[in-house]
């Protein structure tokens, strides 16, 4: 054991140096994949925020139109947004016609700076949430991913995204104003290819996050998404799917989460005890499951606990 330690230490040292070199260039290596005709995806990793991935854990994308690209979400940092825009402009030979930010979580809007402010739009509550809390979210992401974030500041989209049909550069889209993952969640549907960008209302093969979630609203939003006749679904995190399995998986997890935590609260358990609940085997394959479950206890449990306490007058 003693003999091997220095060797292990040396290897670890080399590994860290290698990671530092890769990170020093801060290149996200963004490569778009065409998932339907004129519909492109930048697929993020199914991880938590780290100094190695620079926050690239999110799916973003764009649709080609004659007026330029329609961009869905701008990623976790100014650098991501800039690299994404450069990749799109190189690929399409056109500029950016419109950017839709799906919701006010840092991995989805902190690349806004890279885009002209009059091209950015989001639901009104998303714009308000970025205005009031965006800087705190950016500061927290700095702490988690470090130098990748250099120069990043929160920018609230200038325009309201209005639910309903919209045609941009000859491409017919439909915007859906939903809620539940956050106070306002925008989904974007492309009529021609029947592609649905579901934002973080749908996760696939990765545990859903709940810092601003309302589980009841979220489940109703999933019901509405399920009614849409899509051929391709892009979840906010995780691989693209061509059927309803991602919606079903997200729904099953959220239902289990709510039932399990309410059950724990009714037994008088504390949050630390609720964190010990065994997650069912059907969810075992979801990425970052334990971390997200423990975070969800902190997000959701206090309100459930209060429902079990009675007013205790003198």
């Amino acid at each position: 054991m003693r003999v091997w330690r220095p060797i292990v230490a040396a290897c670890c040292g080399l590994g860290i140096a290698g990671a530092a070199l890769a990170a020093a260039t801060f290149d996200y290596g963004l490569k778009a994949k065409e998932i339907a005709e004129g519909v492109h995806l930048f697929e993020g990793r199914m991880e938590h925020f780290t100094r190695e991935n620079g926050g690239n854990i999110v799916n973003t994308g764009y649709l080609e139109t004659s007026a330029g690209a329609v961009v869905i979400d701008t990623g976790p940092s100014r650098r991501y947004g800039e690299q994404m825009r450069a990749a799109i402009e190189k690929q399409t030979g056109k500029g950016i016609a419109q950017v839709f930010v799906t919701h006010a979580h840092p991995d989805h809007f902190l690349g806004d700076q890279a885009f002209a402010s009059d091209t950015l739009s989001a639901l009104p509550a998303t714009r308000a949430a970025i205005q009031t809390g965006g800087d705190d979210l950016a500061a927290n992401l700095y702490r988690m991913v470090g130098g990748w974030m250099e120069g990043t500041e929160a920018v609230a989209p200038a325009h309201d995204a209005k639910p309903g049909p919209i045609v941009i550069g000859g491409r017919a889209l439909r915007l859906l104003a939903l809620a539940g993952h956050t106070g306002a969640d925008l989904a974007v549907y492309d009529e021609k290819t029947r592609t649905l960008f579901a934002g973080d209302l749908v996760f696939f093969q990765r545990a859903p996050t709940t810092p601003n979630a309302d589980i009841g609203q979220w489940l109703s939003a999933l019901d509405q998404l399920e009614k849409i006749d899509f051929a391709v679904l892009v979840p906010g995190h995780g691989p693209v799917v061509k059927d309803k399995t991602a919606i079903a998986q997200t729904r099953a997890y959220l239902r289990w989460l709510r039932t399990a935590l309410q059950g724990a609260a009714r037994q008088g358990l504390d949050p630390t005890e609720a964190m010990q609940i065994q997650v069912p085997a059907e969810f075992a394959k979801l990425a970052v499951l334990q971390e997200e479950f423990q975070r969800s206890v902190v997000h959701l449990y206090p309100a459930m606990e209060l429902e079990t306490l009675k007013k205790a007058p003198h």
Binding site: G268, D270, T308, L309, K310, K311, A312
Partner: peptide, 20 residues
């Protein structure tokens, strides 16, 4: 200073008391 509370039986002779 308003209080809410709950009491849960634990075993034969104990209780969990939760206060807010």
């Amino acid at each position: 200073n308003q209080v809410s509370g709950g009491l849960w039986a634990r075993g034969e002779d104990r209780s969990r008391l939760k206060l807010r």
